[in-house]
Every structure is written in structure tokens, then in C-alpha cells.
Design a protein around this nucleic acid. Structure first.
Lengths: 270, 270
DNA sequence: CAGTGGTCTAGACCACACT
DNA sequence: GTGTGGTCTAGACCACTGC
């Protein structure tokens, strides 16, 4: 077991034999070499995906997982290290390792990079959310492309405004694939306290894990301007986001318009 | 040595005895506990900072560093892991670990997040750089604050335009602290091929390691508009960047105006 | 071939949280 | 105290690079 280059993780693992099964013991030329900890990471990922461990819950301890996959604790550790670096999982010393969640996380808006110019995110308090619209429709060509759907597939479309300290600051249009979000209504959105992604988790089992944003400066049209209480000459940040679940599956297209007279989009480069 | 909680890294290390020196063997209540690998990381950081290893050069092998600091290879490895994650150092299997550099790196503009809407960054070719202005001046209040200087301290001020495929796309104003950049002239800037940060490294020994950006949508004034060949009504992305060297020392304030009719600012959230 | 980073193991001990 | 993640070690072996 110790020095076996190709390896079949097994035991309680539901799917997946070994990626490299077949060739064993040949020293060179493994076509797609995958280290053990990567395979373990993949297995843990499957369990996260399948819902074996739910957001906010603890996953088994490193020792348990090591026993389950028949590897050393260090190897499990390295797998979890990467999952932790990708924010899929959160470690808490002395307590355990927990599935990351958008709810009950002290960072309320994990993906929102807009910050008030003066004062902290904390000090400005929670946003006031207003659902403007929520309807079923059909995917246009560009929406379909972003969500990996076909044109005309059913989608859910939402428009809302976020206000801070009474000032409308963000106007968002969302498109969600119809099937996973069946049953989402304006009422359920309105009644929900907290981040939208938290609702997606608890009510629909959809966990947003990563997102891409493309940012431009634009002038709003008349309707957009009026919803944000600015003139159409006010330049706004246009933020187009595609959010992904596990496996790089796109699950949301979001087009945001941000006012930047009192706020700014903050980004850290390294 | 093996099981010693408080530890004095020593040997060839120039400064720094041990952070936790003094208390030894007392099991609980070390006021500021710092794991060994963090101390090693700090020592390596000092050597990077002092220029013992220059950008692009290889640092000593993990085994050598382990011997130098009298710790196991695994501990050095974990220290380097973090430095690598922070992009201060680049590992290359079979070759060694190298000091990160903005030059000779295949990513020419490491900190530039603006991308062409169509085609890749590669396909659009290198930017055409034009130095509009380069002069010594005195720090205004806001420039001084950003660079941790005092108002009136000498600074170097640069204005330039970047064009892609002949289209002026980026207008940048830079402020650099006067002392570290003594001797920087418009000519040296103009003659230099390659990223500006690469010149800072090779000519002034200043390595940019991290940066913060605050982004807004604005309308340009008449001069800015003309330099970018747009009308003053064209909304532009205003990107204010503060770039830092080691130790979170700010070394550059850069105010950029980006055209977003053909390009967009791309960001990945996770 | 030797040297480098990369993986894996087994075991010891530490810091932290709960009970 | 027990169990969790976190640190550290020593040693073995693998994959990659270049001589």
C-alpha cells in the first residue's frame, strides 16, 4: 500500500475505482499521473456534491476519512488543505472541518465586492432588498450560452434593488436555470432574510462555489436610472457575473448595476 | 530539538533569535505562539527583502534551507508553500524554487485585469506605450496618505497611455515616492521594453508584491477624453491602485482610466 | 546519473474546544 | 479528559530536469 503509484481508493467510496487503475508497478510513463491526495480530494468533492454532508455540517474527522479511504492522515490533510483553500470547506481547530455555507457565515455577502467609501461594511448595516420582478421566461441566446442551456429553455428571471441606508445602490437582473429552481417565487424571495445564495442552498440544494465577473462602465437607460434614483447621465458599474456550483456548472447569470458615487468595487491583486 | 515548542532558529540566520525565546517547556499559555514554519517563512522573507536572492534567481534547495535553519525539510517546505501561494516565489519541479519576477515571466502584465472582449490577451499583441509626462513634484494630501508619506514630500509623477492595436485604451497617472526612485526619467521609461514593474525590479530593486484596487465608473474630463480619443460623455472605468512591496510598504499610487467599449475588467471570485 | 521539488507514511506532540 | 485540527520530524520513494 505504502509505495503504490497507481491506487484504487475504495472501501466506503460509492463510485470511482481508481483513475489510474490498470497499470501497476511500471515505473515510468503513467499518462495522466494523479497523486493520491488529488484522488482523495475528488472523492470528498463527490460526497460534498451528493449532499452526504450538508452546508454548515461537519465532515468526518481527518482520522475517520483516513481510515475510510485507507490512506494516512497526512494525505487526507493535504486533500482538505486544497478544499479549504478553494473555500469549499472551513476548518476550525479543536472542532472539526465544516462544509462552507453562504448562510450563518459572518461574511454575509461573500461574492459582493462593493464597499461603502466611508465606514466599514459592518457599519452600514444590512441592505434593504426589494424584489421588482420575478417571472418565468425563456432563455435568450446570450443567457443560454452563459448558463450552458439551449435558447428557449425555461429560465427564472428576477430583478431586484438593494439599498443601503435608504439609498438605492444596486440594481440586479438574475437569470436562473428553470429546472433546479422550480418553485422559486417572488414571495419566497421577499420573505427570506439573508443572502440569496443562502436561500439557494437551503431551499434548492444549489451551492455557489465560484464566480466570474466582467466589469464595464456604462450609462443606464431611463428605467434603470429611475430604479436607482439617478439621472441617465450618471456612469455606473456594469458587473456581469456567472456563478458556478461544483464541477464548474454555471447556475446563475447576474447583471448588476452599481452606483459608485458612495461605494466602490474593491479588489485585491496578488 | 524535535519536540521543542519554543524555538530559536539560528545558524546562518542574520537577525532574529526566536520570537518565543525565553519560556521553554511550559506547556500552556505562550502569549504569541508562532509555529516554526512561520518563523522560517519570516527568515526567508528577510532574505528576499535584503536582496540575498534576486528576482528570477533560484533560492537554495529545500534540503539546504533545512540544514541552514536546522529544521526538517517538511517544515521548510510548508514555509515555501505559503510564499508560493502568495506568488513571492515560484516552484519548478526538478529545477528549484525561484524568486518571482515581473520580468521574463510569461504573464507580462500580472496586475492588469483588463482583457479584450474578443480574442485572448495573447492575440492582441503587446501594448503600445506612450509616456505623456514624467516629472518630479510634491505629494498632495491624498497622494501622501496613499504612499505613507508626508504632504509635500518629493514624488515622481508619470502619465502614460497604453494602446492596443492602435486604439488608446488605458490612461494612467502614477505617483512614486521620490527617494527609492531617484534617477527615473521619461527617457529610461520610454526606452524600456516590457512591463513597468519589471523596470522597477531591475533598475531600482523595488519589487511589487501585492496591490489593492478600488474601482468606479466616471466620466472623463476634456483632457482625459482627448488622450483616450473618446468623448467626455463616454463612461470609463476608474481604477485606483496602491501597489505594495514586502512588509506592506506602499510604493506606487496609480490612477487608471480604462475604456470598456472593447475591453472589460475580469475578476474571479471564490 | 545526481539533484530538485512532490508525494506518502507513521508517529509524536501541541493548541484548542467541548464536556 | 477526549477528540479535533495543527505542527514537526525522519525516512522512503516518485517525477521531472539537466548533465
Amino acid at each position: 500500500m505504502a509505495s503504490n503509484p497507481s491506487f484504487s481508493a475504495a472501501s466506503a467510496a460509492p463510485l470511482s475505482g481508481g483513475e489510474n487503475a490498470g497499470v501497476v508497478g511500471l515505473a515510468t510513463q503513467t499518462p495522466a499521473f494523479s497523486p493520491l491526495y488529488q484522488q482523495i480530494k475528488g472523492l470528498i468533492l463527490q460526497s460534498l456534491q451528493s449532499g452526504e454532508w450538508k452546508p454548515g455540517e461537519a465532515i468526518p474527522s481527518e482520522m475517520d476519512l483516513a481510515a475510510r479511504y485507507r490512506v494516512s492522515q497526512g494525505t487526507v490533510r493535504k486533500a482538505i488543505d486544497e478544499l479549504s483553500a478553494e473555500n469549499l470547506v472551513v476548518r476550525r481547530q479543536g472542532k472539526g472541518t465544516f462544509v462552507a455555507t453562504h448562510a450563518e457565515q459572518h461574511v454575509q455577502y461573500r461574492f459582493l465586492k462593493l464597499q461603502p467609501d466611508n465606514g466599514s461594511v459592518q457599519s452600514e448595516g444590512p441592505a434593504q432588498r426589494t424584489i421588482i420582478d420575478c417571472k418565468r421566461s425563456r432563455a435568450s441566446a446570450d443567457v443560454a450560452r452563459a448558463l450552458s442551456l439551449r435558447s428557449g429553455d425555461p429560465v427564472l428571471q428576477v430583478r431586484r434593488v438593494l439599498a443601503f441606508a435608504g439609498v438605492p445602490t444596486i440594481l440586479e437582473d438574475l437569470w436562473l436555470p428553470g429546472t433546479p429552481f422550480k418553485g422559486l417565487t417572488a414571495e419566497r424571495l421577499s420573505n427570506y432574510q439573508g443572502a440569496m445564495y443562502a436561500l439557494f442552498e437551503t431551499e434548492f440544494g444549489v451551492r455557489m462555489v465560484r464566480a466570474d465577473e466582467n466589469i464595464r462602465a456604462i450609462n443606464p437607460d431611463a428605467e434603470q436610472a429611475s430604479l436607482l434614483n439617478v439621472t441617465p447621465k450618471t456612469p455606473l458599474l456594469s458587473v456581469e457575473r456567472v456563478a458556478y456550483t461544483y464541477n464548474d456548472t454555471p447556475m446563475e447569470l447576474r447583471r448588476g448595476l452599481y452606483r459608485t458615487d458612495t461605494h466602490h468595487y474593491h479588489n485585491v491583486l496578488s
